[in-house]
Amino acid sequence: MDVFMKGLSKAKEGVVAAAEKTKQGVAEAAGKTKEGVLYVGSKTKEGVVHGVATVAEKTKEQVTNVGGAVVTGVTAVAQKTVEGAGSIAAATGFVKKDQLGKNEEGAPQEGILEDMPVDPDNEAYEMPSEEGYQDYEPEA
């Protein structure tokens, strides 16, 4: 019985440690998101679009440190934060509304985080759909 109880105690310690790591990862992701939003706020009209992409990228980098179902929630929060940063930029006159959601080359930025393969159960990952990809044929 002692062996059984000791095993359960060790398992509990492992769960607590994993929860603490997840909590730490979420806190880091939130900190990076805040950094990115402050970065966007300090940019001029020309830099705002690039700044919004930076927020998304920093958040995406930190999301990889967070495991399990938390990833889905962090990704949703990050996307809403990026959308909010863009709205703030438009409201303050840093950028025109028609410039939001495009990178410096004018290509749409939507789907940055949505296409990231995420499995809350950590069982399997699927690649994003290939609808947006084109076949590449090298020139002879």
Results as ranks from 00 to 15, higher is better:
residue 47 G to A: 13
residue 33 T to I: 05
residue 72 T to I: 06
residue 73 G to M: 14
residue 120 P to N: 08
residue 41 G to E: 01
residue 24 Q to A: 15
residue 69 A to Y: 14
residue 119 D to Y: 01
residue 72 T to C: 08
residue 106 G to C: 14
residue 36 G to N: 14
residue 138 P to H: 08
residue 44 T to N: 01
residue 99 Q to M: 10
residue 70 V to R: 02
residue 119 D to R: 11
residue 77 V to G: 04
residue 30 A to W: 03
residue 88 I to V: 03
residue 133 Y to N: 15
residue 8 L to R: 00
residue 91 A to D: 04
residue 140 A to G: 12
residue 61 E to H: 08
residue 10 K to A: 07
residue 110 E to L: 10
residue 8 L to E: 00
residue 131 E to W: 08
residue 52 V to S: 02
residue 92 T to A: 13
residue 25 G to H: 15
residue 42 S to K: 15
residue 42 S to E: 08
residue 89 A to D: 02
residue 6 K to F: 01
residue 19 A to W: 14
residue 8 L to Q: 00
residue 6 K to C: 02
residue 8 L to K: 00
residue 73 G to I: 11
residue 85 A to S: 05
residue 46 E to W: 09
residue 112 I to W: 06
residue 21 K to P: 00
residue 29 A to R: 04
residue 93 G to C: 10
residue 137 E to P: 05
residue 90 A to C: 15
residue 69 A to D: 05
residue 71 V to P: 01
residue 74 V to R: 01
residue 23 K to G: 02
residue 107 A to V: 10
residue 56 A to V: 13
residue 77 V to Q: 02
residue 119 D to T: 12
residue 27 A to W: 08
residue 78 A to C: 06
residue 77 V to P: 01
residue 134 Q to L: 08
residue 83 E to N: 09
residue 74 V to F: 11
residue 3 V to S: 07
residue 43 K to D: 00
residue 98 D to W: 14
residue 118 V to D: 09
residue 5 M to S: 05
residue 62 Q to G: 05
residue 25 G to E: 14
residue 38 L to I: 03
residue 71 V to F: 06
residue 65 N to K: 06
residue 81 T to H: 04
residue 89 A to S: 05
residue 122 N to H: 12
residue 22 T to D: 00
residue 28 E to N: 02
residue 55 V to H: 01
residue 22 T to L: 04
residue 94 F to G: 01
residue 81 T to N: 01
residue 84 G to N: 10
residue 42 S to C: 09
residue 108 P to L: 09
residue 102 K to C: 05
residue 34 K to L: 04
residue 99 Q to G: 13
residue 2 D to T: 11
residue 3 V to R: 14
residue 82 V to L: 12
residue 25 G to M: 15
residue 101 G to P: 08
residue 32 K to V: 07
residue 101 G to V: 05
residue 130 E to V: 14
residue 77 V to L: 15
residue 80 K to C: 08
residue 7 G to M: 10
residue 87 S to L: 10
residue 120 P to E: 09
residue 38 L to N: 04
residue 127 M to S: 05
residue 112 I to Y: 07
residue 117 P to A: 08
residue 81 T to A: 15
residue 80 K to V: 05
residue 49 V to G: 04
residue 34 K to Y: 10
residue 51 G to H: 13
residue 89 A to L: 11
residue 8 L to S: 00
residue 63 V to K: 01
residue 101 G to W: 08
residue 132 G to N: 12
residue 17 A to R: 12
residue 122 N to W: 06
residue 94 F to E: 03
residue 28 E to L: 15
residue 10 K to M: 11
residue 135 D to N: 08
residue 123 E to Q: 10
residue 133 Y to W: 08
residue 48 V to K: 00
residue 128 P to D: 10
residue 138 P to R: 07
residue 56 A to Y: 07
residue 4 F to N: 00
residue 66 V to T: 03
residue 112 I to E: 07
residue 30 A to H: 08
residue 125 Y to C: 09
residue 16 V to I: 14
residue 64 T to D: 05
residue 16 V to R: 15
residue 124 A to K: 15
residue 93 G to T: 10
residue 131 E to R: 15
residue 100 L to R: 09
residue 63 V to M: 12
residue 50 H to I: 02
residue 20 E to F: 15
residue 35 E to S: 08
residue 42 S to Q: 08
residue 68 G to T: 08
residue 49 V to L: 15
residue 138 P to F: 07
residue 108 P to S: 06
residue 10 K to I: 15
residue 123 E to C: 14
residue 93 G to I: 06
residue 52 V to P: 01
residue 62 Q to N: 08
residue 103 N to M: 10
residue 89 A to C: 10
residue 90 A to H: 13
residue 13 E to Y: 04
residue 51 G to D: 01
residue 118 V to Y: 08
residue 10 K to C: 01
residue 57 E to T: 09
residue 24 Q to P: 00
residue 13 E to D: 02
residue 124 A to G: 14
residue 111 G to Q: 13
residue 65 N to R: 13
residue 36 G to F: 10
residue 139 E to V: 05
residue 101 G to K: 15
residue 127 M to H: 10
residue 105 E to L: 08
residue 136 Y to G: 03
residue 26 V to W: 14
residue 18 A to K: 04
residue 81 T to D: 02
residue 39 Y to C: 04
residue 128 P to N: 09
residue 136 Y to L: 06
residue 129 S to H: 07
residue 68 G to Y: 02
residue 40 V to F: 14
residue 136 Y to M: 13
residue 32 K to T: 04
residue 108 P to G: 07
residue 76 A to P: 02
residue 6 K to W: 03
residue 88 I to N: 02
residue 65 N to P: 02
residue 97 K to Y: 12
residue 67 G to D: 01
residue 100 L to K: 05
residue 109 Q to P: 02
residue 48 V to H: 00
residue 99 Q to I: 09
residue 119 D to E: 12
residue 14 G to L: 06
residue 72 T to H: 10
residue 76 A to W: 12
residue 113 L to D: 11
residue 123 E to L: 14
residue 110 E to W: 04
residue 114 E to C: 04
residue 71 V to E: 01
residue 117 P to W: 10
residue 104 E to W: 03
residue 116 M to V: 01
residue 35 E to V: 10
residue 100 L to Y: 01
residue 108 P to H: 14
residue 2 D to L: 13
residue 54 T to M: 11
residue 121 D to I: 15
residue 48 V to Y: 11
residue 116 M to I: 07
residue 23 K to R: 12
residue 63 V to D: 00
residue 49 V to H: 04
residue 31 G to F: 14
residue 123 E to H: 12
residue 5 M to Y: 03
residue 120 P to K: 09
residue 122 N to V: 08
residue 49 V to D: 01
residue 83 E to T: 08
residue 135 D to I: 07
residue 128 P to S: 05
residue 51 G to M: 13
residue 115 D to P: 04
residue 90 A to S: 06
residue 69 A to C: 13
residue 114 E to I: 06
residue 136 Y to H: 08
residue 9 S to G: 13
residue 120 P to C: 05
residue 50 H to M: 13
residue 32 K to C: 10
residue 12 K to A: 05
residue 63 V to E: 00
residue 106 G to F: 06
residue 139 E to G: 07
residue 4 F to A: 00
residue 130 E to H: 11
residue 93 G to Y: 02
residue 29 A to N: 02
residue 91 A to E: 03
residue 53 A to T: 04
residue 52 V to Y: 03
residue 140 A to L: 09
residue 126 E to H: 08
residue 139 E to H: 11
residue 33 T to W: 12
residue 119 D to Q: 05
residue 79 Q to F: 09
residue 28 E to H: 05
residue 9 S to Y: 15
residue 67 G to I: 10
residue 48 V to F: 11
residue 43 K to W: 14
residue 138 P to A: 09
residue 30 A to I: 13
residue 34 K to G: 03
residue 16 V to W: 13
residue 87 S to T: 14
residue 82 V to M: 13
residue 138 P to Y: 04
residue 46 E to L: 05
residue 96 K to Y: 12
residue 8 L to T: 00
residue 82 V to A: 10
residue 29 A to G: 04
residue 15 V to Q: 00
residue 9 S to P: 00
residue 128 P to Y: 04
residue 16 V to M: 15
residue 76 A to G: 08
residue 12 K to D: 00
residue 87 S to V: 10
residue 46 E to D: 07
residue 94 F to Q: 13
residue 122 N to F: 06
residue 35 E to F: 13
residue 23 K to N: 01
residue 1 M to E: 00
residue 44 T to P: 00
residue 136 Y to S: 14
residue 8 L to H: 00
residue 39 Y to T: 05
residue 27 A to Y: 14
residue 130 E to C: 13
residue 97 K to S: 07
residue 126 E to D: 09
residue 27 A to I: 13
residue 61 E to T: 11
residue 96 K to R: 10
residue 59 T to I: 03
residue 83 E to D: 09
residue 80 K to H: 07
residue 7 G to Y: 03
residue 98 D to N: 07
residue 19 A to M: 07
residue 9 S to K: 09
residue 120 P to Q: 11
residue 12 K to F: 11
residue 38 L to R: 15
residue 8 L to V: 04
residue 105 E to W: 01
residue 5 M to H: 00
residue 78 A to T: 08
residue 57 E to H: 07
residue 58 K to F: 07
residue 36 G to H: 14
residue 78 A to W: 13
residue 119 D to I: 13
residue 112 I to Q: 10
residue 3 V to G: 02
residue 136 Y to R: 14
residue 135 D to G: 04
residue 34 K to N: 01
residue 33 T to G: 03
residue 115 D to K: 11
residue 23 K to E: 00
residue 129 S to T: 11
residue 64 T to V: 08
residue 72 T to K: 09
residue 44 T to Y: 15
